[in-house]
């Protein structure tokens, strides 16, 4: 499980944010286009690609993409 793949999958869910601007340290909820739909999309993407059932609370307590990735790794 590579963080680069995870970042690429997250980048897919954003329309206006340049994929190259996303790194492990990106505070994803502070991005201009962050929305509840993207939050739901992250949960669905992680379920589909990693077979991990994230909760809304996991999104709430994660600040960076790395934080989120760590939760996915722990539960995979």
């Amino acid at each position: 499980m590579e963080i680069q793949d995870f970042i690429a999958s997250i980048a897919e869910l954003f329309e206006d944010t340049d994929a190259n601007d996303l790194t492990a340290d990106t505070r994803f909820k502070e991005l201009a286009e962050w929305s509840s739909l993207i939050a739901l999309s992250i949960i669905a993407m992680v379920d589909e690609e990693y077979d991990v059932a994230l909760k809304g609370d996991d999104i709430r307590k994660s600040n960076t993409i790395q934080d989120l990735f760590n939760i996915v790794k722990e539960n995979a």
């Binding site: 509840s36 939050a39 739901l40 949960i43 059932a53 909760k55 809304g56 609370d57 999104i59 709430r60």
Partner: peptide, 9 residues
Amino acid sequence: NSPTLTDED
């Protein structure tokens, strides 16, 4: 009570 929503949401 969907797990995708937090109590805060």
